[in-house]
Design a binder for these strands. Structure first.
Length: 425
RNA sequence: GGAUGGGUGGCCGAGUGGUUUAAGGCGCCGCACUUGAAAUGCGGUGGGCUAAAAGGCCCCGCGGGUUCAAAUCCUGCCCCAUCCGCCA
């Protein structure tokens, strides 16, 4: 949520940010005019209530003195009716205002590049060599089929297309990657491990900015007002909703594994081969709570922490900075990590790291007391994949495939897998 | 899922319709006394909205309702504890 007071005082700044996201900016004016109307009604109601309170106290005093107050009470009924009516109008305006405000995306950081889609994203750095092969590299779905790593038909049979049944070494690789990533971020980067629920309630989905606009992306239940979480970002970021964190313990860093569920409505047929786009996938997520002045520096270390995973897996990648038109709803600034997949012949997004500044914290009401000012302030929240598994598995299989049809495992995974390569045997 | 008892400020806890602007205590902060500390005394000590300010309004788990007036009465929901049932 954007700070309404900030929007009031700096409408032009907000408008420019909206335009950078390729919105019209008209939403800002709609908010401003509703806000003005709301404040007018609020002041009126405030004054009426004040009068109501004073006169009620008078009635109380006179009643104690055994005076007759019938006439006053008749007058007060009229006043109470006015207050009630105004209250209803006020509530309608307030809900409309909050509704508009809740749909405004976060303010972009000034460093975010201009552009309307991913073609305008800025490549910041790359790592690793694009591998060359003495043979034609196979796409991961071919490799998986030969090595029996997953079974798309049976996954589809029990749940539907886009739900993967991992088998044999494929199943073990999935588990190994999850365990290794959790251990790696915990030991090497000091993230605290949590294992959150895979479902979240409405407040949590709203607080992290997934509602009201992205309800269609989440799986829901017909017998409970819950959502299957689309990413561990959602439950973990909401961990301290309504709480005040201690300034001295910030930044707080968490690492969490969850399965992630996305309907991917309307995405059918686009990059859907094999593991490229699925409805359920595993992901290890990094989440940070920081003081405002730390958050952009923490975003840099967050993305580096995610990069180290890809480096340890010996996969070539690039880090891109998202442009205004491509950046997520809650983010002020974001980086993606794209890994090269030589079999599929494309870059695969395996991580997205965002600084959501105070946007989620304001919705969730997660604050800290600033020791310098003595005031309560919203924390900044950050999240990043560290990393998402299916496309990482795809890239790993494709990059490390050998002429003999086996797949070499990077050394970090050997202790978790118990073998140095995956073979069909 | 059922039954019972609970949910009041940082914490404990009083309060069953109107001097409650939420008693009292603990904790914390400041000051005084003291060589220092303890003890003691005095004062202060939540959040939000609105307003240029003074001020005003809202918040006793959350939402509705009754009333001139609600922490207090009614109602729906949530959470905690205990017991029962079911269950990995």
């Amino acid at each position: 949520m954007i700070d309404l007071k900030y929007l009031r005082d700096h409408p032009e700044v907000v408008r420019l940010s909206m335009r950078k996201r390729k919105h019209s900016g008209d939403e800002v004016d709609a908010v401003l005019s509703l806000d003005e109307e709301w404040r007018r009604l609020f002041t009126r109601q405030n004054n009426l209530r004040s009068e109501q309170k004073k006169r009620s106290e008078e009635i109380a005093t006179r009643k104690r003195n055994k005076e007759d107050v019938t006439a006053e009470i008749v007058e007060m009924k009229e006043l109470a009716q006015q207050v009630r009516e105004l209250e209803v109008t006020l509530k309608e305006k307030e809900e409309a205002l909050q509704g508009l405000l809740a749909k405004l995306p976060n303010l972009l950081h000034s460093s975010v590049p201009e552009g309307s889609d991913d073609s305008a994203n800025l490549c910041l750095r790359s790592w690793g060599e694009i591998p060359s092969f003495s043979f034609t590299p196979l796409p991961h779905w071919e490799l998986a089929s030969r090595l029996k790593l997953f079974d798309l038909e049976r996954g589809s049979k029990v749940a539907g297309s886009g739900f993967i049944l991992y088998t044999g070494w494929g199943a073990k690789l999935e588990r190994a990657l999850i365990n290794w990533m959790l251990d790696f971020h915990g030991r090497k980067h000091g993230y605290q491990e949590v294992f959150p629920p895979f479902v979240v309630n409405r407040e949590t989905a709203f607080g992290t900015g997934k509602l009201p606009d992205f309800e269609g992306q989440m799986y829901t239940f017909t017998n409970a007002d819950l959502f299957l979480n689309p990413t561990a970002e959602v439950p973990v970021t909401a961990l301290f909703a309504g709480e005040t964190l201690k300034a001295e313990e910030l930044p707080l860093s968490y690492v969490a594994y969850t399965a992630c569920f996305r309907r991917e409505a309307g995405a059918a047929g686009k990059d859907t081969r094999g593991l490229l786009r699925v409805h359920q996938f595993d992901k290890v997520e990094l989440v940070k709570f920081t003081r405002p002045e730390q958050s952009f520096a923490e975003l840099e270390t967050l993305v580096r922490d995610a990069e180290e995973i890809i480096q340890a897996l010996e996969l070539p990648y690039q880090v891109v900075e998202l442009c205004g038109g491509d950046i997520g709803f809650g983010a002020a600034k974001a980086y993606d990590i794209n890994v090269w997949a030589p079999g599929a012949g494309k870059w695969l997004e395996v991580s997205s790291c965002s600084n959501c500044t105070d946007f989620q914290a304001r919705r969730l009401n997660t604050r800290f007391r600033n020791p310098e000012s003595g005031k309560l302030e919203f924390v900044h929240t950050l999240n990043g994949s560290g990393v998402a598994l299916p496309r990482t598995v795809a890239a790993l299989l494709e990059n490390h495939q050998q002429a003999d049809g086996s797949v070499r495992l990077p050394p970090v995974l050997v202790p978790y897998m118990g073998v140095e390569r995956i073979t069909s045997a």
